[in-house]
Design a protein around this nucleic acid. Structure first.
Lengths: 198, 198
DNA sequence: CACAACCGACTGACTCGTCGGTTTTGTAAG
DNA sequence: CTTACAAAACCGACGAGTCAGTCGGTTGTG
Protein backbone atom coordinates (compact mmCIF):
# COMPACT_ATOMS: atom_id res chain seq x y z
CA UNK A 1 0.00 0.00 0.00
CA UNK A 2 1.28 3.47 -0.79
CA UNK A 3 2.28 5.87 1.87
CA UNK A 4 -0.45 8.42 1.45
CA UNK A 5 -3.32 5.99 1.65
CA UNK A 6 -1.90 4.40 4.77
CA UNK A 7 -1.38 7.78 6.34
CA UNK A 8 -4.95 8.65 5.47
CA UNK A 9 -6.18 5.55 7.23
CA UNK A 10 -4.18 6.37 10.33
CA UNK A 11 -5.52 9.86 10.30
CA UNK A 12 -9.13 8.76 10.33
CA UNK A 13 -8.41 6.00 12.83
CA UNK A 14 -7.08 8.67 15.15
CA UNK A 15 -10.23 10.71 14.66
CA UNK A 16 -12.40 7.69 15.39
CA UNK A 17 -10.49 6.97 18.56
CA UNK A 18 -10.60 10.60 19.61
CA UNK A 19 -14.34 10.60 19.07
CA UNK A 20 -14.68 7.62 21.38
CA UNK A 21 -12.42 8.96 24.10
CA UNK A 22 -13.65 12.55 24.03
CA UNK A 23 -17.22 11.43 24.24
CA UNK A 24 -16.39 9.02 27.06
CA UNK A 25 -14.32 11.43 29.16
CA UNK A 26 -15.05 14.92 27.94
CA UNK A 27 -12.44 17.18 26.41
CA UNK A 28 -10.31 18.01 29.45
CA UNK A 29 -10.30 14.53 30.92
CA UNK A 30 -9.44 12.83 27.67
CA UNK A 31 -5.73 12.03 27.71
CA UNK A 32 -3.67 11.98 24.55
CA UNK A 33 -2.17 8.71 25.73
CA UNK A 34 -5.62 7.19 25.79
CA UNK A 35 -6.43 8.40 22.30
CA UNK A 36 -3.08 7.01 21.19
CA UNK A 37 -3.68 3.54 22.55
CA UNK A 38 -7.30 3.52 21.40
CA UNK A 39 -6.14 4.29 17.89
CA UNK A 40 -3.39 1.64 18.00
CA UNK A 41 -0.77 4.34 17.75
CA UNK A 42 1.62 6.18 20.00
CA UNK A 43 1.78 9.68 21.38
CA UNK A 44 4.38 10.53 18.76
CA UNK A 45 2.16 9.22 16.02
CA UNK A 46 -0.62 11.47 17.17
CA UNK A 47 1.61 14.50 17.11
CA UNK A 48 2.83 13.60 13.67
CA UNK A 49 -0.71 13.86 12.31
CA UNK A 50 -2.01 16.70 14.45
CA UNK A 51 -0.22 19.67 15.96
CA UNK A 52 -2.03 19.47 19.29
CA UNK A 53 -5.04 18.22 21.20
CA UNK A 54 -7.21 21.15 20.26
CA UNK A 55 -6.71 20.49 16.55
CA UNK A 56 -8.05 16.96 16.90
CA UNK A 57 -11.16 18.19 18.65
CA UNK A 58 -11.73 20.95 16.14
CA UNK A 59 -11.33 18.46 13.29
CA UNK A 60 -14.12 16.40 14.81
CA UNK A 61 -16.37 19.40 15.22
CA UNK A 62 -15.70 20.47 11.65
CA UNK A 63 -16.45 16.97 10.44
CA UNK A 64 -19.85 16.94 12.16
CA UNK A 65 -20.71 20.47 11.09
CA UNK A 66 -19.79 19.78 7.48
CA UNK A 67 -21.85 16.61 7.42
CA UNK A 68 -24.90 18.31 8.90
CA UNK A 69 -24.64 21.34 6.68
CA UNK A 70 -24.15 19.46 3.43
CA UNK A 71 -26.96 17.00 4.12
CA UNK A 72 -29.38 19.71 5.18
CA UNK A 73 -28.52 21.93 2.24
CA UNK A 74 -28.82 19.22 -0.39
CA UNK A 75 -32.08 18.03 1.14
CA UNK A 76 -33.45 21.56 0.93
CA UNK A 77 -32.28 22.02 -2.63
CA UNK A 78 -33.88 18.77 -3.67
CA UNK A 79 -37.23 19.97 -2.34
CA UNK A 80 -38.85 22.51 -4.68
CA UNK A 81 -41.79 23.47 -2.45
CA UNK A 82 -40.67 26.26 -0.16
CA UNK A 83 -43.23 25.26 2.43
CA UNK A 84 -41.64 21.83 2.71
CA UNK A 85 -37.99 22.85 2.67
CA UNK A 86 -38.06 23.35 6.41
CA UNK A 87 -39.62 19.95 6.95
CA UNK A 88 -37.03 18.04 4.98
CA UNK A 89 -34.21 19.98 6.62
CA UNK A 90 -35.54 19.15 10.08
CA UNK A 91 -36.07 15.51 9.21
CA UNK A 92 -32.59 15.28 7.73
CA UNK A 93 -30.98 16.85 10.78
CA UNK A 94 -32.75 14.51 13.16
CA UNK A 95 -31.80 11.49 11.06
CA UNK A 96 -28.17 12.57 10.92
CA UNK A 97 -27.96 13.19 14.66
CA UNK A 98 -29.65 9.87 15.33
CA UNK A 99 -27.05 8.07 13.26
CA UNK A 100 -24.03 9.63 14.99
CA UNK A 101 -24.72 9.67 18.67
CA UNK A 102 -21.18 10.08 20.01
CA UNK A 103 -20.32 12.83 17.54
CA UNK A 104 -23.57 14.50 18.45
CA UNK A 105 -22.61 14.35 22.09
CA UNK A 106 -19.32 16.06 21.36
CA UNK A 107 -20.99 18.61 19.19
CA UNK A 108 -23.75 19.62 21.55
CA UNK A 109 -22.51 18.81 25.02
CA UNK A 110 -18.74 18.64 25.36
CA UNK A 111 -17.89 21.41 22.95
CA UNK A 112 -19.59 24.14 24.92
CA UNK A 113 -17.73 23.66 28.15
CA UNK A 114 -14.45 22.58 26.61
CA UNK A 115 -12.88 25.94 27.22
CA UNK A 116 -12.92 29.54 26.16
CA UNK A 117 -10.95 28.79 22.99
CA UNK A 118 -13.77 26.70 21.58
CA UNK A 119 -16.61 29.06 22.27
CA UNK A 120 -15.75 31.33 19.38
CA UNK A 121 -15.59 28.47 16.94
CA UNK A 122 -18.76 26.95 18.33
CA UNK A 123 -20.61 30.23 18.05
CA UNK A 124 -19.53 30.46 14.43
CA UNK A 125 -20.86 26.99 13.76
CA UNK A 126 -24.09 27.76 15.60
CA UNK A 127 -24.40 30.98 13.66
CA UNK A 128 -23.91 29.22 10.36
CA UNK A 129 -26.87 26.99 11.16
CA UNK A 130 -28.97 29.81 12.50
CA UNK A 131 -28.05 31.63 9.32
CA UNK A 132 -29.31 28.73 7.25
CA UNK A 133 -32.60 28.88 9.12
CA UNK A 134 -32.75 32.66 8.96
CA UNK A 135 -32.25 32.63 5.19
CA UNK A 136 -35.07 30.14 4.88
CA UNK A 137 -37.34 32.25 7.06
CA UNK A 138 -36.42 35.44 5.19
CA UNK A 139 -37.17 33.71 1.92
CA UNK A 140 -40.55 32.61 3.25
CA UNK A 141 -41.29 36.13 4.46
CA UNK A 142 -40.38 37.84 1.19
CA UNK A 143 -42.25 35.14 -0.69
CA UNK A 144 -45.35 36.08 1.23
CA UNK A 145 -45.66 32.59 2.71
CA UNK A 146 -45.48 33.88 6.27
CA UNK A 147 -45.92 37.21 7.96
CA UNK A 148 -42.97 39.40 8.82
CA UNK A 149 -41.18 38.56 12.08
CA UNK A 150 -37.88 38.95 13.93
CA UNK A 151 -35.98 36.28 12.03
CA UNK A 152 -32.88 36.76 14.18
CA UNK A 153 -34.60 35.69 17.33
CA UNK A 154 -36.76 33.16 15.52
CA UNK A 155 -33.84 31.32 13.92
CA UNK A 156 -31.96 31.28 17.21
CA UNK A 157 -35.01 29.94 18.98
CA UNK A 158 -35.60 27.28 16.34
CA UNK A 159 -32.02 26.18 16.53
CA UNK A 160 -32.27 26.05 20.31
CA UNK A 161 -35.47 24.08 20.27
CA UNK A 162 -34.03 21.39 18.02
CA UNK A 163 -30.76 21.51 19.93
CA UNK A 164 -32.47 20.85 23.24
CA UNK A 165 -34.61 18.00 21.98
CA UNK A 166 -31.50 16.35 20.54
CA UNK A 167 -29.47 17.04 23.69
CA UNK A 168 -32.13 15.47 25.86
CA UNK A 169 -32.03 12.44 23.63
CA UNK A 170 -28.24 12.21 23.84
CA UNK A 171 -28.14 12.55 27.62
CA UNK A 172 -31.25 10.67 28.70
CA UNK A 173 -32.21 8.51 25.75
CA UNK A 174 -35.64 10.07 25.41
CA UNK A 175 -37.31 9.68 23.04
CA UNK A 176 -35.96 6.19 22.36
CA UNK A 177 -35.95 6.97 18.64
CA UNK A 178 -34.96 10.56 18.06
CA UNK A 179 -37.07 10.67 14.92
CA UNK A 180 -40.18 10.16 17.06
CA UNK A 181 -39.90 13.79 18.09
CA UNK A 182 -40.24 14.91 14.50
CA UNK A 183 -44.03 15.37 14.19
CA UNK A 184 -44.46 17.38 17.38
CA UNK A 185 -41.37 19.47 16.74
CA UNK A 186 -42.40 20.15 13.16
CA UNK A 187 -45.83 21.36 14.15
CA UNK A 188 -44.46 23.51 16.96
CA UNK A 189 -41.92 25.24 14.77
CA UNK A 190 -44.16 25.78 11.78
CA UNK A 191 -47.06 27.03 13.83
CA UNK A 192 -44.71 29.31 15.73
CA UNK A 193 -44.06 31.33 12.60
CA UNK A 194 -47.66 31.19 11.51
CA UNK A 195 -47.50 28.39 8.97
CA UNK A 196 -50.51 26.13 9.29
CA UNK A 197 -49.64 22.46 9.53
CA UNK A 198 -50.41 20.81 6.22
CA UNK B 1 -19.61 39.99 65.44
CA UNK B 2 -20.58 36.44 66.32
CA UNK B 3 -18.89 33.49 64.78
CA UNK B 4 -21.70 32.22 62.65
CA UNK B 5 -22.42 35.49 60.89
CA UNK B 6 -18.79 35.97 60.00
CA UNK B 7 -18.55 32.44 58.76
CA UNK B 8 -21.63 33.08 56.67
CA UNK B 9 -20.02 36.11 55.13
CA UNK B 10 -16.90 34.17 54.27
CA UNK B 11 -19.00 31.45 52.78
CA UNK B 12 -20.77 33.78 50.42
CA UNK B 13 -17.60 35.68 49.64
CA UNK B 14 -16.12 32.37 48.53
CA UNK B 15 -19.13 31.73 46.35
CA UNK B 16 -18.84 35.18 44.81
CA UNK B 17 -15.18 34.64 44.07
CA UNK B 18 -15.84 31.18 42.68
CA UNK B 19 -18.50 32.62 40.41
CA UNK B 20 -15.99 35.11 39.05
CA UNK B 21 -13.19 32.62 38.55
CA UNK B 22 -15.31 29.78 37.17
CA UNK B 23 -16.92 32.08 34.67
CA UNK B 24 -13.55 33.53 33.69
CA UNK B 25 -11.71 30.23 33.29
CA UNK B 26 -14.30 27.49 33.08
CA UNK B 27 -14.61 24.71 35.61
CA UNK B 28 -11.47 22.70 34.88
CA UNK B 29 -9.17 25.66 34.41
CA UNK B 30 -10.30 27.40 37.56
CA UNK B 31 -7.69 26.78 40.26
CA UNK B 32 -8.66 26.56 43.89
CA UNK B 33 -5.70 28.82 44.66
CA UNK B 34 -7.20 31.47 42.44
CA UNK B 35 -10.59 31.23 44.09
CA UNK B 36 -8.81 31.46 47.43
CA UNK B 37 -6.95 34.63 46.63
CA UNK B 38 -9.96 36.17 44.88
CA UNK B 39 -12.00 35.61 48.03
CA UNK B 40 -9.29 37.02 50.29
CA UNK B 41 -8.86 33.63 51.91
CA UNK B 42 -6.50 30.72 51.74
CA UNK B 43 -6.67 27.22 50.37
CA UNK B 44 -7.26 25.91 53.87
CA UNK B 45 -10.08 28.36 54.38
CA UNK B 46 -11.75 27.14 51.24
CA UNK B 47 -11.54 23.55 52.33
CA UNK B 48 -12.89 24.47 55.72
CA UNK B 49 -16.10 25.73 54.14
CA UNK B 50 -16.44 23.26 51.29
CA UNK B 51 -15.36 19.64 51.01
CA UNK B 52 -14.02 20.00 47.47
CA UNK B 53 -14.07 21.91 44.23
CA UNK B 54 -17.13 20.15 42.92
CA UNK B 55 -19.20 21.16 45.94
CA UNK B 56 -18.51 24.83 45.32
CA UNK B 57 -19.63 24.56 41.74
CA UNK B 58 -22.76 22.63 42.65
CA UNK B 59 -23.61 25.22 45.29
CA UNK B 60 -23.50 27.90 42.61
CA UNK B 61 -25.69 25.91 40.27
CA UNK B 62 -28.18 25.25 43.03
CA UNK B 63 -28.23 28.94 43.90
CA UNK B 64 -29.07 29.93 40.34
CA UNK B 65 -31.64 27.20 39.89
CA UNK B 66 -33.38 28.07 43.15
CA UNK B 67 -33.52 31.73 42.26
CA UNK B 68 -34.95 31.09 38.82
CA UNK B 69 -37.49 28.57 40.04
CA UNK B 70 -38.76 30.64 42.93
CA UNK B 71 -39.07 33.82 40.89
CA UNK B 72 -40.79 32.08 38.02
CA UNK B 73 -43.18 30.21 40.30
CA UNK B 74 -44.19 33.20 42.34
CA UNK B 75 -44.64 35.28 39.20
CA UNK B 76 -46.95 32.61 37.80
CA UNK B 77 -48.91 32.32 41.03
CA UNK B 78 -49.40 36.06 41.16
CA UNK B 79 -50.94 36.02 37.68
CA UNK B 80 -54.52 34.70 37.73
CA UNK B 81 -55.09 34.57 33.98
CA UNK B 82 -53.85 31.23 32.70
CA UNK B 83 -53.19 32.69 29.27
CA UNK B 84 -50.78 35.18 30.77
CA UNK B 85 -48.97 32.89 33.20
CA UNK B 86 -46.57 31.86 30.46
CA UNK B 87 -45.87 35.45 29.56
CA UNK B 88 -44.96 36.53 33.06
CA UNK B 89 -42.83 33.43 33.58
CA UNK B 90 -40.91 34.13 30.39
CA UNK B 91 -40.47 37.80 31.22
CA UNK B 92 -39.32 36.92 34.73
CA UNK B 93 -36.78 34.41 33.48
CA UNK B 94 -35.31 36.83 30.96
CA UNK B 95 -35.10 39.54 33.58
CA UNK B 96 -33.40 37.23 36.05
CA UNK B 97 -30.88 36.00 33.50
CA UNK B 98 -30.19 39.54 32.39
CA UNK B 99 -29.42 40.55 35.96
CA UNK B 100 -26.95 37.73 36.62
CA UNK B 101 -24.79 37.37 33.58
CA UNK B 102 -21.87 35.48 35.08
CA UNK B 103 -24.09 33.05 36.95
CA UNK B 104 -26.03 32.56 33.74
CA UNK B 105 -22.83 31.76 31.93
CA UNK B 106 -21.98 29.10 34.47
CA UNK B 107 -25.46 27.73 34.39
CA UNK B 108 -25.86 27.44 30.65
CA UNK B 109 -22.36 27.18 29.25
CA UNK B 110 -19.76 25.91 31.68
CA UNK B 111 -21.94 23.43 33.51
CA UNK B 112 -22.61 21.21 30.52
CA UNK B 113 -19.05 20.41 29.67
CA UNK B 114 -17.73 20.46 33.22
CA UNK B 115 -17.59 16.70 33.36
CA UNK B 116 -19.71 13.62 33.48
CA UNK B 117 -20.51 14.08 37.20
CA UNK B 118 -22.38 17.27 36.49
CA UNK B 119 -24.48 16.08 33.62
CA UNK B 120 -26.83 14.14 35.84
CA UNK B 121 -27.40 17.08 38.13
CA UNK B 122 -27.81 19.43 35.19
CA UNK B 123 -30.33 17.17 33.55
CA UNK B 124 -32.31 17.13 36.78
CA UNK B 125 -32.31 20.90 36.88
CA UNK B 126 -33.26 21.11 33.21
CA UNK B 127 -36.01 18.59 33.82
CA UNK B 128 -37.40 20.56 36.72
CA UNK B 129 -37.80 23.56 34.44
CA UNK B 130 -39.19 21.55 31.58
CA UNK B 131 -41.55 20.06 34.14
CA UNK B 132 -42.69 23.54 35.16
CA UNK B 133 -43.41 24.32 31.52
CA UNK B 134 -45.04 20.96 30.92
CA UNK B 135 -47.37 21.40 33.89
CA UNK B 136 -48.37 24.78 32.52
CA UNK B 137 -49.00 23.35 29.06
CA UNK B 138 -50.94 20.41 30.49
CA UNK B 139 -53.07 22.80 32.50
CA UNK B 140 -53.75 24.85 29.39
CA UNK B 141 -54.68 21.73 27.45
CA UNK B 142 -57.05 20.36 30.07
CA UNK B 143 -58.50 23.84 30.50
CA UNK B 144 -59.36 23.84 26.82
CA UNK B 145 -57.21 26.89 26.18
CA UNK B 146 -55.09 25.09 23.63
CA UNK B 147 -55.45 21.93 21.56
CA UNK B 148 -53.87 18.69 22.69
CA UNK B 149 -50.19 18.25 21.84
CA UNK B 150 -47.03 16.36 22.81
CA UNK B 151 -46.22 18.38 25.90
CA UNK B 152 -43.01 16.44 26.51
CA UNK B 153 -41.44 17.54 23.29
CA UNK B 154 -43.07 20.96 23.46
CA UNK B 155 -41.75 21.78 26.93
CA UNK B 156 -38.29 20.60 25.95
CA UNK B 157 -38.38 22.68 22.80
CA UNK B 158 -39.60 25.75 24.67
CA UNK B 159 -36.87 25.37 27.22
CA UNK B 160 -34.33 24.95 24.44
CA UNK B 161 -35.56 27.97 22.55
CA UNK B 162 -35.25 30.24 25.58
CA UNK B 163 -31.98 28.61 26.51
CA UNK B 164 -30.46 29.31 23.12
CA UNK B 165 -31.56 32.91 22.99
CA UNK B 166 -30.07 33.48 26.43
CA UNK B 167 -26.89 31.58 25.56
CA UNK B 168 -26.38 33.65 22.45
CA UNK B 169 -26.77 36.74 24.57
CA UNK B 170 -24.23 35.52 27.10
CA UNK B 171 -21.65 34.57 24.50
CA UNK B 172 -22.08 37.26 21.88
CA UNK B 173 -23.93 40.05 23.62
CA UNK B 174 -26.83 39.96 21.19
CA UNK B 175 -29.37 41.35 21.71
CA UNK B 176 -27.72 44.13 23.71
CA UNK B 177 -30.61 44.03 26.16
CA UNK B 178 -31.75 40.47 26.67
CA UNK B 179 -35.27 41.66 27.35
CA UNK B 180 -35.47 42.96 23.78
CA UNK B 181 -35.92 39.38 22.65
CA UNK B 182 -39.07 39.05 24.72
CA UNK B 183 -41.75 40.11 22.19
CA UNK B 184 -40.52 37.91 19.36
CA UNK B 185 -39.87 34.97 21.63
CA UNK B 186 -43.25 35.32 23.27
CA UNK B 187 -45.10 35.34 19.99
CA UNK B 188 -43.11 32.41 18.64
CA UNK B 189 -43.74 30.23 21.66
CA UNK B 190 -47.42 31.08 22.05
CA UNK B 191 -48.20 30.69 18.39
CA UNK B 192 -46.32 27.42 18.35
CA UNK B 193 -48.86 25.85 20.65
CA UNK B 194 -51.77 27.49 18.92
CA UNK B 195 -52.38 30.42 21.24
CA UNK B 196 -53.13 33.53 19.27
CA UNK B 197 -51.08 36.54 20.31
CA UNK B 198 -53.24 38.85 22.33
C1' DC C 1 19.72 5.92 0.80
C1' DA C 2 16.38 9.52 1.86
C1' DC C 3 12.43 10.66 3.87
C1' DA C 4 7.95 9.94 5.76
C1' DA C 5 5.89 7.67 9.48
C1' DC C 6 6.13 6.20 13.91
C1' DC C 7 7.63 5.18 18.76
C1' DG C 8 7.64 6.03 23.90
C1' DA C 9 10.53 7.70 27.71
C1' DC C 10 10.91 11.97 29.54
C1' DT C 11 10.20 16.91 30.98
C1' DG C 12 8.09 20.77 32.80
C1' DA C 13 4.24 22.84 34.40
C1' DC C 14 0.25 22.55 36.97
C1' DT C 15 -3.14 21.63 40.62
C1' DC C 16 -6.25 19.06 43.98
C1' DG C 17 -6.55 18.05 48.42
C1' DT C 18 -4.01 17.36 53.01
C1' DC C 19 -2.06 18.49 57.28
C1' DG C 20 0.44 20.50 61.05
C1' DG C 21 0.29 24.64 62.93
C1' DT C 22 -1.56 29.53 64.00
C1' DT C 23 -4.97 33.06 65.02
C1' DT C 24 -9.55 34.47 66.43
C1' DT C 25 -13.69 33.98 68.97
C1' DG C 26 -16.95 32.51 72.53
C1' DT C 27 -17.40 31.21 77.23
C1' DA C 28 -16.77 30.78 81.96
C1' DA C 29 -14.38 30.84 86.08
C1' DG C 30 -11.46 33.59 89.24
C1' DC D 1 -11.83 42.96 84.28
C1' DT D 2 -8.70 39.28 83.09
C1' DT D 3 -7.14 34.95 82.72
C1' DA D 4 -7.77 30.32 80.89
C1' DC D 5 -9.05 27.31 77.62
C1' DA D 6 -11.54 24.93 73.97
C1' DA D 7 -13.32 25.10 69.58
C1' DA D 8 -13.92 27.32 65.27
C1' DA D 9 -11.75 29.49 61.55
C1' DC D 10 -7.95 30.05 58.88
C1' DC D 11 -3.21 29.57 56.80
C1' DG D 12 0.11 27.97 53.15
C1' DA D 13 3.81 24.62 52.16
C1' DC D 14 3.90 20.29 50.31
C1' DG D 15 2.83 15.45 48.68
C1' DA D 16 1.25 13.02 45.02
C1' DG D 17 -0.47 12.67 40.81
C1' DT D 18 -1.67 14.18 36.07
C1' DC D 19 -0.85 15.25 31.39
C1' DA D 20 0.35 18.06 27.04
C1' DG D 21 3.91 18.27 24.28
C1' DT D 22 9.10 17.16 22.95
C1' DC D 23 12.87 14.74 21.08
C1' DG D 24 16.24 11.42 19.86
C1' DG D 25 15.95 7.25 17.89
C1' DT D 26 13.71 3.42 14.93
C1' DT D 27 11.12 1.27 11.13
C1' DG D 28 9.40 0.83 6.65
C1' DT D 29 8.73 2.33 1.93
C1' DG D 30 9.81 4.30 -2.73
Amino acid sequence: MEKQAKSQIRNSRILDAAQTVFSRKGYKDAAMDEIASESQTSKGGLYFHFPNKQAIFLALLEQMAAMLRSRAESAMQAEPDIRKKGDVALATMLRTFAGHRTLTRLFLVEALGAGREFNDRMMEIHSSFSRLIKDYLDEAVSGGIIASLDTDVASTAWFGAVNQVVTRWVLTGQPAQLEDAYPALRQLLKQGIGLSDN
